[in-house]
Protein backbone atom coordinates (compact mmCIF):
# COMPACT_ATOMS: atom_id res chain seq x y z
CA UNK A 1 0.00 0.00 0.00
CA UNK A 2 1.18 3.45 -0.71
CA UNK A 3 0.13 5.98 1.88
CA UNK A 4 0.72 9.01 -0.31
CA UNK A 5 -1.37 7.74 -3.19
CA UNK A 6 -4.14 6.83 -0.77
CA UNK A 7 -4.06 10.26 0.82
CA UNK A 8 -4.32 11.91 -2.56
CA UNK A 9 -7.21 9.66 -3.53
CA UNK A 10 -9.09 10.54 -0.37
CA UNK A 11 -8.27 14.22 -0.59
CA UNK A 12 -9.51 14.56 -4.15
CA UNK A 13 -12.61 12.57 -3.37
CA UNK A 14 -13.31 14.84 -0.43
CA UNK A 15 -13.08 17.74 -2.86
CA UNK A 16 -10.09 19.40 -1.26
CA UNK A 17 -7.24 20.94 -3.15
CA UNK A 18 -3.65 20.31 -2.18
CA UNK A 19 -3.36 23.86 -0.97
CA UNK A 20 -6.57 23.67 1.02
CA UNK A 21 -5.65 20.59 2.94
CA UNK A 22 -2.11 21.84 3.51
CA UNK A 23 -3.43 25.11 4.86
CA UNK A 24 -5.93 23.41 7.12
CA UNK A 25 -3.42 21.11 8.72
CA UNK A 26 -0.81 23.82 8.82
CA UNK A 27 1.87 22.47 6.53
CA UNK A 28 3.15 23.80 3.24
CA UNK A 29 1.55 22.50 0.10
CA UNK A 30 4.99 21.56 -1.16
CA UNK A 31 5.45 19.23 1.81
CA UNK A 32 2.04 17.65 1.36
CA UNK A 33 2.72 17.15 -2.32
CA UNK A 34 5.98 15.40 -1.46
CA UNK A 35 4.15 13.14 0.96
CA UNK A 36 1.55 12.29 -1.65
CA UNK A 37 4.25 11.44 -4.11
CA UNK A 38 6.01 9.34 -1.53
CA UNK A 39 9.14 11.45 -1.67
CA UNK A 40 8.93 12.58 1.92
CA UNK A 41 8.65 10.34 4.95
CA UNK A 42 5.10 9.42 5.97
CA UNK A 43 3.56 12.07 8.20
CA UNK A 44 3.80 11.79 11.94
CA UNK A 45 0.99 10.49 14.06
CA UNK A 46 -0.21 14.01 14.87
CA UNK A 47 -0.28 15.07 11.25
CA UNK A 48 -2.09 11.92 10.19
CA UNK A 49 -4.65 12.60 12.90
CA UNK A 50 -5.06 16.15 11.65
CA UNK A 51 -5.49 14.92 8.08
CA UNK A 52 -8.03 12.34 9.21
CA UNK A 53 -9.95 15.07 11.03
CA UNK A 54 -10.04 17.26 7.94
CA UNK A 55 -11.11 14.37 5.72
CA UNK A 56 -13.61 13.27 8.33
CA UNK A 57 -12.46 9.67 8.50
CA UNK A 58 -11.46 7.76 11.65
CA UNK A 59 -7.82 8.51 12.48
CA UNK A 60 -7.28 4.85 13.31
CA UNK A 61 -8.09 3.93 9.75
CA UNK A 62 -5.41 6.19 8.30
CA UNK A 63 -3.00 4.96 10.92
CA UNK A 64 -3.71 1.46 9.71
CA UNK A 65 -3.18 2.47 6.12
CA UNK A 66 0.17 3.84 7.12
CA UNK A 67 0.84 0.50 8.82
CA UNK A 68 1.99 2.31 11.85
CA UNK A 69 2.07 0.59 15.21
CA UNK A 70 0.96 3.73 16.82
CA UNK A 71 3.07 5.24 19.54
CA UNK A 72 -0.13 5.01 21.53
CA UNK A 73 0.12 1.23 21.54
CA UNK A 74 3.84 1.33 22.25
CA UNK A 75 3.24 3.64 25.18
CA UNK A 76 0.50 1.45 26.55
CA UNK A 77 2.67 -1.65 26.38
CA UNK A 78 5.37 0.14 28.28
CA UNK A 79 2.98 1.29 30.97
CA UNK A 80 1.24 -2.05 31.38
CA UNK A 81 3.77 -4.80 30.78
CA UNK A 82 1.08 -7.44 31.34
CA UNK A 83 -0.57 -6.32 28.15
CA UNK A 84 2.63 -7.18 26.37
CA UNK A 85 2.41 -10.71 27.69
CA UNK A 86 -1.11 -10.95 26.37
CA UNK A 87 0.10 -9.87 22.94
CA UNK A 88 2.74 -12.56 23.10
CA UNK A 89 0.05 -15.11 23.92
CA UNK A 90 -1.89 -14.10 20.90
CA UNK A 91 1.18 -14.28 18.74
CA UNK A 92 2.06 -17.76 20.05
CA UNK A 93 -1.38 -19.07 19.21
CA UNK A 94 -1.05 -17.65 15.73
CA UNK A 95 -4.63 -16.52 15.71
CA UNK A 96 -6.11 -15.95 12.29
CA UNK A 97 -8.10 -12.90 11.29
CA UNK A 98 -11.39 -14.59 12.02
CA UNK A 99 -10.25 -15.64 15.47
CA UNK A 100 -8.95 -12.20 16.24
CA UNK A 101 -12.35 -10.88 15.25
CA UNK A 102 -13.90 -13.08 17.91
CA UNK A 103 -11.48 -11.80 20.50
CA UNK A 104 -12.38 -8.31 19.40
CA UNK A 105 -16.10 -9.08 19.68
CA UNK A 106 -15.54 -10.36 23.19
CA UNK A 107 -13.69 -7.17 24.09
CA UNK A 108 -16.46 -5.05 22.64
CA UNK A 109 -19.07 -6.92 24.61
CA UNK A 110 -17.14 -6.98 27.85
CA UNK A 111 -15.51 -3.57 27.82
CA UNK A 112 -17.51 -1.33 25.56
CA UNK A 113 -15.59 1.65 24.29
CA UNK A 114 -17.18 4.97 25.07
CA UNK A 115 -15.64 7.43 22.79
CA UNK A 116 -16.63 10.28 20.62
CA UNK A 117 -17.42 9.85 16.98
CA UNK A 118 -14.56 9.01 14.72
CA UNK A 119 -14.41 5.52 16.08
CA UNK A 120 -17.43 3.86 14.60
CA UNK A 121 -16.61 0.68 12.77
CA UNK A 122 -15.51 0.88 9.20
CA UNK A 123 -18.02 -0.68 6.79
CA UNK A 124 -16.61 -3.91 5.39
CA UNK A 125 -16.07 -4.51 1.72
CA UNK A 126 -17.30 -8.07 1.37
CA UNK A 127 -21.04 -7.31 1.73
CA UNK A 128 -20.81 -4.94 -1.23
CA UNK A 129 -19.58 -7.79 -3.37
CA UNK A 130 -21.23 -10.93 -4.58
CA UNK A 131 -19.88 -13.82 -6.61
CA UNK A 132 -21.44 -12.33 -9.74
CA UNK A 133 -19.36 -9.24 -9.28
CA UNK A 134 -16.07 -11.01 -8.87
CA UNK A 135 -14.08 -11.58 -12.03
CA UNK A 136 -11.09 -13.84 -11.70
CA UNK A 137 -8.11 -14.31 -13.93
CA UNK A 138 -8.58 -11.37 -16.24
CA UNK A 139 -5.78 -10.87 -18.66
CA UNK A 140 -5.86 -7.77 -20.75
CA UNK A 141 -3.49 -5.34 -22.32
CA UNK A 142 -4.92 -2.12 -21.02
CA UNK A 143 -6.19 -0.83 -17.72
CA UNK A 144 -9.29 0.50 -19.45
CA UNK A 145 -10.30 -3.02 -20.36
CA UNK A 146 -10.24 -3.97 -16.70
CA UNK A 147 -12.43 -0.97 -15.91
CA UNK A 148 -14.83 -1.98 -18.66
CA UNK A 149 -15.12 -5.50 -17.33
CA UNK A 150 -15.73 -4.18 -13.82
CA UNK A 151 -18.28 -1.71 -15.13
CA UNK A 152 -20.05 -4.52 -16.95
CA UNK A 153 -20.48 -6.43 -13.70
CA UNK A 154 -21.47 -3.33 -11.75
CA UNK A 155 -24.09 -2.37 -14.30
CA UNK A 156 -25.77 -5.70 -13.76
CA UNK A 157 -26.25 -4.79 -10.09
CA UNK A 158 -27.51 -1.28 -10.74
CA UNK A 159 -30.86 -1.30 -12.44
CA UNK A 160 -31.10 1.26 -15.19
CA UNK A 161 -27.39 1.79 -15.43
CA UNK A 162 -25.53 1.45 -18.64
CA UNK A 163 -22.15 -0.26 -18.51
CA UNK A 164 -20.53 2.20 -20.88
CA UNK A 165 -21.70 5.18 -18.83
CA UNK A 166 -20.35 3.55 -15.70
CA UNK A 167 -17.05 2.80 -17.37
CA UNK A 168 -16.93 6.39 -18.47
CA UNK A 169 -17.59 7.49 -14.89
CA UNK A 170 -14.80 5.30 -13.56
CA UNK A 171 -12.44 6.64 -16.19
CA UNK A 172 -13.31 10.26 -15.45
CA UNK A 173 -12.47 9.82 -11.79
CA UNK A 174 -9.34 8.02 -12.77
CA UNK A 175 -8.31 11.03 -14.81
CA UNK A 176 -8.99 13.32 -11.87
CA UNK A 177 -6.92 11.26 -9.50
CA UNK A 178 -5.07 8.00 -10.11
CA UNK A 179 -6.77 5.32 -8.08
CA UNK A 180 -3.80 3.06 -7.51
CA UNK A 181 -3.06 2.68 -3.85
CA UNK A 182 0.01 0.53 -4.18
CA UNK A 183 0.67 -3.15 -3.44
CA UNK A 184 -0.81 -3.95 -6.82
CA UNK A 185 -4.28 -2.66 -6.00
CA UNK A 186 -6.34 0.08 -7.58
CA UNK A 187 -9.66 1.46 -6.38
CA UNK A 188 -11.50 3.05 -9.28
CA UNK A 189 -14.71 4.59 -8.08
CA UNK A 190 -17.68 6.34 -9.56
CA UNK A 191 -20.71 8.21 -8.37
CA UNK A 192 -24.23 7.28 -9.39
CA UNK A 193 -26.87 9.47 -7.84
CA UNK A 194 -28.98 7.61 -5.34
CA UNK A 195 -27.41 4.22 -5.87
CA UNK A 196 -26.72 1.93 -2.96
CA UNK A 197 -23.01 1.30 -2.57
CA UNK A 198 -21.85 -1.66 -4.59
CA UNK A 199 -18.46 -3.05 -5.54
CA UNK A 200 -16.91 -5.28 -8.13
CA UNK A 201 -13.60 -7.05 -7.82
CA UNK A 202 -11.34 -8.08 -10.67
CA UNK A 203 -8.18 -10.12 -10.23
CA UNK A 204 -5.66 -9.98 -13.01
CA UNK A 205 -3.99 -13.13 -14.23
CA UNK A 206 -1.40 -11.07 -16.02
CA UNK A 207 -0.23 -8.18 -13.84
CA UNK A 208 -0.43 -4.85 -15.62
CA UNK A 209 2.61 -2.62 -15.68
CA UNK A 210 1.29 0.84 -14.96
CA UNK A 211 3.14 3.58 -13.22
CA UNK A 212 2.07 2.62 -9.76
CA UNK A 213 3.16 4.78 -6.85
CA UNK A 214 5.27 1.98 -5.45
CA UNK A 215 6.23 0.44 -8.79
CA UNK A 216 4.32 -2.78 -8.22
CA UNK A 217 2.35 -4.05 -11.21
CA UNK A 218 -1.41 -4.02 -10.88
CA UNK A 219 -2.95 -7.31 -9.85
CA UNK A 220 -6.29 -6.38 -8.36
CA UNK A 221 -9.00 -3.88 -9.20
CA UNK A 222 -11.67 -3.05 -6.65
CA UNK A 223 -14.27 -0.88 -8.33
CA UNK A 224 -16.66 1.01 -6.07
CA UNK A 225 -19.88 2.75 -6.96
CA UNK A 226 -21.57 5.02 -4.52
CA UNK A 227 -24.71 7.07 -4.35
CA UNK A 228 -23.58 9.48 -1.69
CA UNK A 229 -20.56 11.65 -1.31
CA UNK A 230 -18.86 11.89 1.99
CA UNK A 231 -17.60 10.07 4.98
CA UNK A 232 -18.78 6.55 4.27
CA UNK A 233 -17.39 6.67 0.78
CA UNK A 234 -14.02 7.96 1.94
CA UNK A 235 -13.91 5.33 4.62
CA UNK A 236 -14.55 2.61 2.06
CA UNK A 237 -11.71 3.88 -0.11
CA UNK A 238 -9.34 4.06 2.81
CA UNK A 239 -10.44 0.63 3.93
CA UNK A 240 -9.53 -0.90 0.58
CA UNK A 241 -6.16 0.81 0.75
CA UNK A 242 -5.67 -0.72 4.17
CA UNK A 243 -6.60 -4.15 2.88
CA UNK A 244 -4.11 -3.62 0.08
CA UNK A 245 -1.49 -2.93 2.72
CA UNK A 246 -2.35 -6.23 4.35
CA UNK A 247 -1.55 -8.10 1.17
CA UNK A 248 -5.00 -8.40 -0.38
CA UNK A 249 -3.63 -8.75 -3.90
CA UNK A 250 -1.24 -11.52 -2.87
CA UNK A 251 -3.92 -13.44 -1.04
CA UNK A 252 -6.41 -13.27 -3.90
CA UNK A 253 -3.91 -13.92 -6.64
CA UNK A 254 -4.37 -17.27 -8.26
CA UNK A 255 -7.76 -18.03 -6.73
CA UNK A 256 -10.03 -19.32 -9.48
CA UNK A 257 -13.42 -19.36 -7.84
CA UNK A 258 -15.28 -16.16 -7.04
CA UNK A 259 -16.65 -17.73 -3.87
CA UNK A 260 -13.18 -18.56 -2.71
CA UNK A 261 -12.18 -14.98 -3.38
CA UNK A 262 -15.02 -13.69 -1.22
CA UNK A 263 -14.21 -16.09 1.61
CA UNK A 264 -10.59 -15.00 1.62
CA UNK A 265 -11.64 -11.39 1.62
CA UNK A 266 -14.03 -11.90 4.52
CA UNK A 267 -11.35 -13.61 6.50
CA UNK A 268 -8.89 -10.84 5.77
CA UNK A 269 -11.20 -8.08 6.81
CA UNK A 270 -12.77 -9.84 9.77
CA UNK A 271 -10.69 -7.63 12.00
CA UNK A 272 -11.36 -4.14 10.95
Amino acid sequence: MHLGATLRLLRVDAGLSLRDLARRIGVSSAYLSRVENGVDAPPTQERLTAIARELDVPPGLLMDVANRVSPYVAGYLEDVPAAGTLMLDIARRQLTGAQLARVRAFLDAEFPLREARGHEPVPPLAPLLSPERVVVGLSCGDYEDALDVAAGRLAAALPGQDAAALAEGLRKREDAVPSQVGNGVSVPHAFVAGAAPVAALVTLARPLKLDAPDGQPLRLVVALVDGHVGRARLMRLAHVARLAGRGLADRLHGLQDPRQVLETLEELEALR
Binding site: V135, V136, G137, L138, S139, C140, G141, D142, D145, D148, V149, A151, G152, R153, A155, A156, D162, A163, A164, L166, A167, V202, A205, Q256
Partner: peptide, 23 residues
Amino acid sequence: VRTLSFVSSEPARDICRTAQAKR
Protein backbone atom coordinates in the same frame (compact mmCIF):
# COMPACT_ATOMS: atom_id res chain seq x y z
CA VAL B 1 -6.26 -5.71 -31.48
CA ARG B 2 -6.62 -5.35 -27.75
CA THR B 3 -7.05 -8.69 -26.12
CA LEU B 4 -9.03 -9.43 -23.05
CA SER B 5 -9.76 -12.66 -21.31
CA PHE B 6 -11.12 -13.81 -18.01
CA VAL B 7 -12.88 -16.66 -16.31
CA SER B 8 -16.60 -16.63 -16.84
CA SER B 9 -19.35 -18.98 -15.87
CA GLU B 10 -21.93 -17.19 -17.98
CA PRO B 11 -20.20 -16.44 -21.27
CA ALA B 12 -23.25 -15.01 -23.01
CA ARG B 13 -23.90 -12.46 -20.30
CA ASP B 14 -20.26 -11.52 -20.06
CA ILE B 15 -20.10 -10.99 -23.80
CA CYS B 16 -23.11 -8.69 -23.55
CA ARG B 17 -21.70 -6.75 -20.62
CA THR B 18 -18.37 -6.28 -22.28
CA ALA B 19 -20.02 -5.24 -25.54
CA GLN B 20 -22.04 -2.71 -23.60
CA ALA B 21 -19.08 -1.34 -21.71
CA LYS B 22 -17.11 -1.00 -24.91
CA ARG B 23 -20.09 0.42 -26.76
